[in-house]
Simulated assay, not measured.
Amino acid sequence: MKKLFVVLSILLLMSQYRLWVGEGSFAHIAELKRNITKQTAENQRLRAQNQRLALEVEGLRNGYDSVEEKAREELGLIKPGETFYLFIEPESK
């Protein structure tokens, strides 16, 4: 009877190991849920960025004004007849 109790106790402990420690355990599932939450937030951020970029691409494809604005901001476009002024703020000491 004592041997049976020992064997059953060992079997019970072995079956509980995976539940508490191994793959598929409560801790593992909680970690996976945290990872899913983080990945979902990252996916939403990337979707928003993709939408902004898609709108920018659409604007560049369809409008000369968008291309001109981009050229002025990023490349320093100055049209003939325009005068360029650069204002430099004095350094704070």
Rank of each mutant, 00 (worst) to 15 (best):
R47F: 13
Q16C: 09
G81P: 02
G76K: 01
R18N: 12
K33G: 06
E56Q: 08
I88A: 08
R52K: 02
Q51R: 15
N50C: 12
E73N: 12
K93Y: 12
W20F: 11
T40Q: 04
G63S: 14
K70E: 08
Q16V: 11
E23W: 01
V67I: 09
N43K: 12
S66D: 05
M1C: 07
Y85V: 15
V21W: 10
L77W: 02
S9D: 04
K79A: 04
K70T: 15
T40F: 04
G81I: 13
K93T: 10
L53M: 00
N62R: 05
E74C: 11
G81T: 07
R52D: 07
Q49V: 13
L13H: 07
D65A: 13
V7T: 11
F84A: 15
E58N: 07
I78G: 01
E74K: 12
R45D: 05
L53V: 03
L11T: 11
L60D: 03
I78H: 02
A41F: 00
I10R: 02
L4S: 01
R52A: 08
L8F: 12
F5D: 05
D65S: 14
L4G: 11
V67M: 00
S25H: 06
E68H: 01
E74I: 15
Q44S: 11
T40S: 10
S9A: 11
Y85I: 14
V67S: 02
S25T: 05
G81E: 03
E42G: 02
A27F: 11
R34H: 05
T83S: 03
S25A: 08
L12S: 02
L55D: 13
I88D: 07
E42W: 09
P80G: 15
A30G: 08
L11V: 14
L8D: 07
L60F: 07
A48S: 10
S15R: 12
G76V: 05
G81L: 09
S92A: 14
A27N: 03
E89H: 00
L4A: 06
A30T: 01
A30L: 08
V67D: 08
V67P: 01
E82F: 04
I88N: 00
Y17I: 08
N35W: 03
Y64C: 14
F5N: 09
W20Q: 08
K79D: 02
Q51A: 15
G24R: 08
K2M: 10
R61Q: 09
A54C: 04
A54H: 02
T40V: 15
F87N: 13
G22K: 08
G22W: 01
L75C: 07
L19R: 14
Q51V: 15
R61Y: 11
S66M: 09
